[in-house]
Design a protein around this nucleic acid. Structure first.
Lengths: 232, 232
DNA sequence: CGTGCCATTGACCATTATCAAACGACGTGG
DNA sequence: CCACGTCGTTTGATAATGGTCAATGGCACG
């Protein structure tokens, strides 16, 4: 790995406070790799070989059973993929694919397990990473079970607008089918929900969303910090 | 806390390998408490004060939004409740109630955070606890999204039978309404699914379940280790 | 200009929830 | 010992929600 890459990775929260020597160990064994859009990174059921840390881009975790498939989460930087499988050396429970061109650090699973036994700061960072990912999935599950699909969409728009600066105008960052999958519905259903949202002050044109009646949207979305707020 | 209690708790995986001195610190600050059935242990939105470690019994984690409620998981010993909230010092995302009379260790959140900064073995155990809980919730989510309710029930029966020794005859360990909630359906739906399962070789009488055609049940359940097997 | 691919629309179906009523086991008090 | 409540469960009727299948539209890219 090039020195400039290492510098860059060093700022990821998971690595930020660890000892120089253990960071060197990980970096020496690791790769920084660029992946194009829509590439499968790993398959459920396989034994973990590398810890994947997302530096740039977006990755979808999904799972299949028979001929069904479902998205479990879409995660962006900075976050570790399949940390649990690496820690326990058990098979991946999910597959993963890129949703955008992505920059990903690959670190041999064995090196990760060895280092957090020796570096308390890394152990602490690992715990924090886990805690955050755990809470994220709990929020996803609550969202899924406590709201019908149109409310999930309304909440997503409400939050995406805030993240984009609250101007009432922003672009959907991936294909609509990915958005549908992330929100736990079919593309057809997403379309119908968009149509329905027109009557709540939301206009859609291609990937552009305009919010014309923020109050109406908020009444429908009923934002809940214990579901929607990533910083809670 | 009494010395006998401390001995008992010492065997919980989370505490098993930690240093004696840090175990003493936790135990000195903690309580071992017995709770009756159907008691609320904590409310979502509250700030964490104690880490709860389940030693005996069963606890349901649930969440609400407006007038809806959903069960996120039912966990039994040995497991830590709301570890993520304690680690990050953020509000609980879920509420919790006992489903059986339960024995629970309460350890002040501050003490937990202090100890895993000082005790590598405890930090490692915390990471493992997280990894296991994370994988459990991923499996729950997959189960929920990839199978209709009757298959979830069939899978649950299949697994519960194995856990009970594979005799084809066992008792449901809690009220049916709790089982329904755990499986993500309404009690009415559970009833109808039980009725339907009669045509797949499963007979129900009160809390007793008898499997009369194991093959038929298995065909319906389509067991999947990446969803159903707790040791994967 | 085709040719794909994503998105949309329409018709229909499957699954699950909701509301209401009846049933049945169980424990209490007459 | 039996009548009576209580509470969990079951059953029936109906509605909401979301999925499936099929056809069409529209846009980008060769």
């Amino acid at each position: 790995m090039r020195a400039a890459d290492a510098e860059y990775i060093r700022r990821v929260p998971l690595f930020r406070n660890m000892k120089d020597t253990s960071f060197e160990t990980l970096v020496a064994a690791g790769y920084l790799q660029r992946f194009p859009d829509h590439v499968i990174l790993l398959h459920e059921g396989e034994q973990p070989d590398f810890l994947h840390v997302i530096v740039e881009g977006a990755v979808e975790q999904f799972a299949t059973h028979g001929d069904r498939e479902t998205t479990l989460s879409i995660i962006g930087p900075p976050a570790a993929l399949i940390l649990a499988a690496v820690v326990l050396d058990r098979p991946y429970l999910t597959s993963a694919r890129t949703l955008k061109p992505s920059l990903i650090v690959l670190i041999p699973a064995e090196a990760v397990r060895a280092v957090f036994d020796q570096d308390p700061a890394f152990a602490r960072a690992t715990i924090h990473e886990f805690a955050n990912r755990y809470r994220a999935i709990v929020k996803d599950l609550k969202n899924m079970r406590l709201r019908p699909s149109i409310e999930r969409l309304a909440s997503w728009i409400f939050r995406a607008n805030l993240d984009a600066g609250g101007t009432g105008r922003f672009l959907i960052p991936f294909e609509k089918r990915s958005l549908a999958s992330q929100l736990g519905m079919r593309p057809e259903n997403l379309s119908r929900n968009f149509a329905e949202l027109a009557r709540h002050g939301v206009k859609v044109n291609g990937r552009e969303i305009r919010i014309e009646d923020a109050d109406a949207l908020e009444r429908l979305a009923r934002p809940d910090p214990l579901i929607d707020d990533p910083s809670v």
